[in-house]
Simulated assay, not measured.
Amino acid sequence: MRILLVEDDLNLADAVCSYLRAKAFIVDAVPSLAGARAALASARYAAVLLDLHLGDGDGLMLMPGLRTLPERPIVIVLTARDQVSDRIRGLDAGADDYLTKPYDPAELLARLRAVERRRSSVESATVRLGSLEIDLGNDQVRVHGAPVTLTQKEWALLRVMASRPDRIHSRETLLDALYGFDDDTDSNTLEVFVSRLRRKLGRSHIQTLRGLGYRLVPGDDAPDAGPETGA
């Protein structure tokens, strides 16, 4: 999942980015409305974490533009304003959730996952597809009951597909889940990570739809032998 953090407190932004990146999320951080609009014009985000008090205006000024996107991202408002009226204003503007500063990054992660499940119509944090079991709440994967170790990039790719297992995910959507603004990417990098996941999960679990993208499907074949390394 690629996330846009709109936060002008640079120390807080660094802490949140570090925490979420350690959980295999791709996070781009900007300190202003202008930066947010530029980021949204150049990349697709699954979620926006939005501070209200920004140097160039109220964060909620971003909401009309978010509503016009082909697929509106999850929006969680993060603010020091703790009045009930401010929460109501944020939710009425279209935010999915509201978290008051100071907050525990673990609570932010839990709310992000909860909203993600609601938006994707996935009732449980655990997705089961044949022999594959993906626990989105605890970042754990099992095949035939045996735990599978994934790199951060592999997990980032898998969680996007597992969050919407009914959907065909385009190359562009999956690349957005793997790389932020400051990352370099090769033209075949997605295929490399898909190949690694197939080795670890079993090849039949990831279906290729030529010209459209990839999706997770039930499967029952065993993973290939031998661990792989990578980013």
Rank of each mutant, 00 (worst) to 15 (best):
A95H: 10
A114G: 05
R171C: 05
D8G: 13
A46V: 02
D14T: 12
A125D: 14
I3S: 10
A177R: 06
R2V: 03
Y179D: 09
L132P: 14
D8L: 06
T126G: 07
L174E: 00
T151Q: 12
R21V: 09
L52Y: 14
A146L: 15
P105F: 12
L5D: 14
R199T: 06
E228A: 07
N138T: 08
V194D: 04
S170F: 06
G94K: 12
G226D: 06
E133H: 09
I26Q: 15
E71Q: 04
N188G: 02
L40N: 03
S85A: 02
R215Y: 01
V48Y: 11
D182L: 02
M63C: 01
A34F: 01
F193Q: 04
D182T: 14
G230S: 09
D176F: 07
K101I: 12
D166F: 00
L201H: 05
L49R: 14
L99C: 05
Y98C: 05
S32F: 05
K153S: 15
Y19C: 03
G230P: 13
S170L: 12
Y179G: 04
G59P: 13
L5K: 09
F25L: 05
Q207H: 09
I168M: 08
V6G: 11
L10I: 13
P102L: 11
K153D: 14
P165A: 02
T100G: 05
L150Q: 11
A13G: 15
R196G: 02
H169A: 11
L12D: 07
L60K: 15
L99D: 02
R210W: 11
E133T: 14
M61G: 03
R171A: 14
L49A: 11
R117G: 02
L109S: 02
D58Q: 05
P227A: 00
H53Q: 09
N138R: 12
Y19M: 07
R198K: 15
L109I: 05
A39D: 08
M61N: 09
N11M: 08
R198T: 07
E172D: 13
Y179E: 11
V115N: 10
D135C: 10
D186L: 04
G57K: 08
G230V: 13
Y19Q: 04
P64T: 08
A114S: 11
A80N: 01
L50Y: 11
A39P: 09
A34E: 15
N11T: 08
A36M: 09
T68A: 04
T126N: 09
S131C: 09
P73N: 15
L158F: 08
L10T: 12
V148I: 15
G226W: 07
D184C: 02
D182C: 05
D92G: 00
V27M: 06
Q140T: 14
A95C: 10
R164S: 07
G145F: 11
H205T: 04
G202Y: 01
L62Q: 06
E228V: 13
T208S: 11
L5H: 13
E71H: 00
A15N: 02
A146Q: 15
N11W: 00
F25Y: 15
A22I: 12
V6T: 13
P73L: 14
V160I: 12
G59F: 01
V75I: 08
P70T: 02
L49I: 03
M161E: 01
